[in-house]
């Protein structure tokens, strides 16, 4: 879908509130849509996003973003608060559907299938595109039930034995098995923050997704728990595509292969993580990475 004339006006209305603060930070380069610097496309895409616009009511939160997510890669999305990276992430499994005023335009494909096609059912889509949230949010049920819930509602298992297997493999993959194997029937909410987040990751991989979306998964965790999650992400990459939103640039540098820098709803620059952090091409990216604002 092409942007409408109204969309550009919306750009201006959104920026009126934040403009003065932003102007201090750098040149006023970003109120309008701008060309993406770097190559957002890959050869073996799992997810393909083309000209995605997201509106909250009249406000345009994402402007003409095009990017691919490759198989078996970690794509990090960085940018200052309110730049739309979380909004964009939540478009990838249609979590924005729950926000009634949110409207998505453009094309997002998962393995060639347009996920915003009216005929698409969000339930299997969300099974294929799992999500891990900012705050660990295990169900207030037992550890076992936390993992088994997804496979159960999707009917992935035939009997208890298979379910036990899924629970075990998911927990092993999430690196939590050793810590919880003796207390699977205790509530998931009783675990520590880092363990809870790994439980949430285990819950996401229990339904065998293709893509895992992570929305600042470590922002509520201490450095030790964070490093465990980061190791886990590196390992999960061998089987899944991972898109991670993060505020910690070191984290993006550590875990990701490609990095996308968002600014005020624009995708400013995409590139290999090494290149973005060592040799950013766009002024805004450089300002952000060097800590001049954000």
């Amino acid at each position: 879908m092409k942007p409408t004339a109204g969309a550009d006006q919306d750009n201006n209305t959104e920026d009126t509130g934040t403009e003065p603060a932003r102007r201090k930070a750098g040149p006023d380069l970003y109120t309008e849509f701008q060309q993406i610097v770097g190559n957002p496309y890959v050869d073996n895409p799992r997810m393909v996003c083309r000209d995605v616009y997201v509106y909250y009511g009249e406000t345009c939160a994402i402007k003409k973003v095009s990017i691919d997510v490759a198989c078996n890669e970690v794509l990090a999305m960085i940018g200052p608060s309110g730049c739309g990276k979380s909004t964009f992430l939540r478009c990838l499994n249609r979590m924005n559907d729950t926000v009634s005023i949110c409207r998505v335009e453009g094309e997002i494909r998962l393995d060639g299938m347009d996920i915003y096609d009216p005929s698409v059912d969000v339930v299997p889509l969300r099974a294929k595109v799992g999500m891990v949230f900012q705050k660990p949010n295990p169900f207030p049920k037992s550890i076992y039930e936390n993992i088994s819930y997804g496979p159960k509602i999707h009917g992935l298992t035939k009997d208890k034995h298979e379910m036990d297997e899924i629970v075990e493999t998911s927990l092993i993959r999430a690196g939590l098995w050793e810590e919880v194997k003796d207390r699977l029937n205790e509530p998931g909410t009783g675990l520590s923050g880092g363990q809870q987040q790994r439980l949430c990751i285990a819950r996401a991989i229990a339904v065998s997704p293709e893509v895992i979306l992570m929305d600042e998964p470590c922002s509520a965790l201490d450095p030790i728990a964070t490093s465990k999650i980061e190791d886990l992400i590196a390992e999960l990459r061998t089987q899944y595509s991972i898109v991670i939103v993060t505020h910690a640039m070191q984290q993006a540098a550590r875990v990701s292969q490609r990095t996308a820098y968002f600014h005020l709803g624009n995708l400013v620059e995409v590139g290999d993580t090494d290149q973005i952090f060592t040799n950013p091409k766009h002024q805004l990216t450089e300002d952000y990475i060097t800590g001049r604002f954000g």
Binding site: M95, T98, F133, P138, I153, R203, V207
Partner: peptide, 18 residues
Amino acid sequence: VPPSIREAALGVGASKIQ
């Protein structure tokens, strides 16, 4: 009920009614 619980359930593919 915290919205995070709804998100968690929707995130693993539960339908609205589930």
